[in-house]
Design a protein around this nucleic acid. Structure first.
Length: 466
RNA sequence: GGUCGGAUGGCCGAGAGGCGAGGCUCGGGACUGCAAAUCCCGCUACACGGGUUCAAAUCCCGUUCCGACCUCCA
């Protein structure tokens, strides 16, 4: 039963294509990872969720998956093409650049786990793969796809690769000079669209390495070619990344990789669309950056963010807001509570639940149509003709794909001793019918960020979401 | 300028030619010492102009407006 194909939208062919294992053993997936000079914001996380969804789905269908994601800790230049992002941040925080990289890398992994994004098999760091990159650059020079410029940098010759532009649709003849090109000394590049594989150190003293072309550091695009070919044994079944990486990053990577192995190196290119926050693209320059830690501070379950992402197809733009996060948080809580109740019903029609599960799996394998899959869960929740036991079976099974920890009991951040005492006092006051006092204590708790509700079995409390 | 998307009720948002997805807000009710939560009820839309069809939010043509990308970026 579990031998269906996962269909994904391939940017290069602009069509749905099945995810396949080219060696018949495992599916080889590579995803562009973070540049670790700051915390990843929730927009970044949306793209990283894509890798998780694909791997969950592929594994569910019975594939063995090998998943590699790089950590960029060197060579990613800031806007002006002059300073390395990591070095700039190291200067700003007065720390060692490698220390900066490790700090933000650790925080990245923490954010992933908050969103239930399962880890990749390996997270190679660019700074630890220098030799691999140098080997690849040497090969490209040998094959005359790359050359040493008069400025001591090694450049890839864009015109030496006839297939350039297939992913993005940008043809070389339409890439006219005049845009913001990578900075070089005049005349070092033979052609304006050539890019650096190895950059000469110049005045730079940190994060530089010896090379056959002198001291320097790698260009940004070469790391992904080197790592994907090295760790995935010269072929990538699926390459993932954010839509903005389509050009130039992936276009350049493809040129490098294909020229190295003399064949197409990547079967499928899948790109995740951007996240907007309250109407605008999430970016430092828009001032609307939201971090996973911001959600936690507001007492939102980080998985509410995951749920918001799932309510939108990965390749459409989506607009996130505090309101939608709050609504998702409430829905998660409600589902978890109901699932606890449904679990008590031992009656379940297995053929009925299997059918419902299969319908949801079908949505996933149809280019990760998570919005439709969620809609099915919503109507299942409301259904009066389906037994609780069956609902439980379905939610339990498909949570392997959704990854929302739906079987968890609703958990609470623990109370301060002060709040604990006030809660107890209030319970006593209410039992003795002292309502003015209990109302006063309720106000006091509200100031501590706690809301109290009174039910038949006494009072219960919750953190107020800001 | 080029490329690609979009326009749905007070708001967000899904829509697969034929029962008005769903959520949030709001109003009414039940429940409650009150409040909150929960449950019930209510409000009801497809940018504009043509066309195809027995039937169009959905398909086709045109118009207007909006967004993203086009060598920093997930």
């Amino acid at each position: 039963m579990k031998n269906e194909n996962l269909l994904l939208f391939d940017t290069k062919s602009r069509q749905l294509q099945p995810l396949k294992s080219s060696d018949g053993k495992r599916v080889r997936i590579y995803s562009c990872g973070p540049t670790v000079y700051r915390d990843a914001h929730v927009g970044n996380m949306r793209t990283f969720l894509l890798g998780d969804l694909v791997t969950r789905c592929a594994k569910y269908l019975g594939f063995k998956v090998e998943f590699i994601q790089n950590i960029t800790d060197v060579g990613h230049m800031s806007e002006d093409f002059v300073e390395d992002k990591i070095l700039a941040q190291a200067k700003a925080e007065s720390k060692d650049p490698f220390e900066i990289a490790r700090i933000y890398e650790a925080r990245y992994h923490k954010d992933l786990s908050h969103l239930n994004i399962s880890p990749a098999d390996k997270y190679p760091r660019a700074s630890e793969c220098i030799e691999m990159m140098q080997d690849l650059i040497s090969k490209l020079i040998e094959k005359e796809h790359a050359y040493l410029g008069s400025d001591g940098c090694v450049y890839f010759s864009a015109q030496s690769f006839p297939g350039y532009g297939a992913i993005s649709g940008n043809r070389l003849d339409s890439l006219k000079p005049g845009h913001r090109f990578e900075y070089t000394e005049a005349g070092a590049k033979r052609f304006h669209a050539d890019w650096a594989l190895w950059k000469a150190a110049g005045d730079r003293t940190q994060m530089i390495w010896d090379s056959p072309w002198g001291k320097g550091f790698p260009g940004w695009h070469i790391e992904c070619s080197a790592m994907s070919l090295h760790y995935l044994d010269n072929f990538v079944d699926l390459h993932l990344g954010g839509i903005d990486l389509r050009f130039p990053h992936h276009e350049d990577e493809r040129a490098q990789s294909n020229c190295t192995i003399d064949q197409e190196a990547v079967e499928l290119w899948v790109h995740g669309e951007h996240l907007l926050f309250e109407g605008r693209k999430m970016a430092k320059s828009s001032g609307n950056v939201v971090l996973v830690s911001d959600l936690i501070e507001k007492n939102l379950d980080p998985l509410a963010l995951r749920l918001c992402f799932l309510e939108n197809r990965y390749r459409s733009q989506m607009d996130l807001s505090w309101q939608s996060l709050k609504a998702a948080h409430t829905l998660l809580q409600r589902w978890r509570e109901k699932i606890q109740l449904w679990q008590k019903d031992a009656n379940s029609d297995l053929s009925q639940s299997a059918k419902l599960i299969q319908e949801i799996v079908n949505d996933f394998i149809n280019d990760l149509d998570t919005p439709r899959a969620l809609q099915k869960l919503r109507s299942l929740e409301k259904s009066e003709s389906i037994s609780d036991g069956c609902k439980y079976q379905v939610f339990k099974e498909v949570d392997q794909l959704f990854g929302l920890n739906l079987l968890n009991q609703v958990t609470q951040k623990s109370l301060s001793p002060e709040a604990e005492i006030i809660l107890q006092q209030r319970e006593v006051a209410r039992k003795s019918g002292n309502f003015p006092e209990s109302d006063r204590l309720r106000d006091q708790l509200e100031k501590l960020g706690i809301s109290v509700k009174d039910g038949k079995s006494g009072q219960s409390w919750d953190w107020i979401i800001n």
